[in-house]
């Protein structure tokens, strides 16, 4: 499958995400924020970084990038979209996912290997995992505190839309230890930790992130 990875000004993890896509057995297509063209890809990744220097709010300016018109339209029609870290922030700013992401409650940037539980393995991006599988992937953020009003949290929990939850420690004050969520249809997933940094033994964090990049193919051939 062709998976597009969009580069914005200030994106950091686009090349890692492209590599993870290839390691996962898919074709990576580099997409540019300033184009109105998804080049016919089957899915899109919004990678991590500090687009527009996090000015105004994280992801707030990128959300209005030209290519986001096509991403939002596509997502509403079922195009699989994965937003990692800054990409997750873009997805909440686009209202493709509910809630918001605030400064970590302890105000410090955090960088650690984080244990997670995959609680929804029926999304386009998590079907390669077993239900409640525990994984460890890198986490690195300054504004990763997930918040939403009580009704939204209840709906996310009741509908099984919490995709990943922090285990052992809540690194940023996120409500209910939420690390990642999905939309109603399960095609859009936002995740604060970084599975794309855990796909090869060479770089030390294990292989636990790989499932996010193999799920699409598994689903297509299932």
């Amino acid at each position: 499958m062709k998976i597009g990875v969009i580069t914005f000004p200030g994106t950091l993890d686009d090349v890692d995400a492209q590599r993870a896509v290839r390691v996962g057995g898919n074709e990576a297509v580099a997409l540019w924020h300033g184009d109105h063209d998804l080049q016919g890809v089957d899915a899109v990744i919004l990678p991590g970084g500090f687009s527009y220097g996090d000015y105004l709010r994280c992801g707030a300016i990128s959300r209005f990038a030209p290519i986001m018109t096509e991403v939002i339209e596509g997502a509403q029609k079922g195009l699989p979209v994965l937003g990692i870290c800054n990409g997750f922030q873009m997805l909440v700013e686009s209202h493709l996912l509910p809630g918001g992401l605030l400064r970590n409650d302890h105000l410090k940037f955090i960088c650690r290997d984080q244990k997670l539980r995959i609680e929804n393995n029926s999304t386009a991006w998590t079907s390669a995992f077993t239900q409640n599988q525990e994984i460890v992937v890198p986490l690195k953020n300054g504004e990763g505190q997930y918040v939403a009003d009580a009704d939204t949290i209840k709906r996310l929990e009741d509908e099984g839309r919490v995709v990943a939850r922090y285990l052992d420690v809540n690194p940023n004050g996120s409500v209910n230890d939420i690390a990642g969520i999905t939309n109603e249809a399960g095609n859009v997933v936002g995740l604060m930790p970084h599975p794309e940094h855990a796909v090869e033994t060479l770089t030390g964090s294990g292989l636990d992130g790989l499932g996010f990049f193999t799920s699409l193919a598994e689903k297509a051939f299932a």
Partner: peptide, 13 residues
Amino acid sequence: MPKPEILDPQGKA
């Protein structure tokens, strides 16, 4: 302004 019900870590600091 952050909404009243939203924790404001910077204001707290």
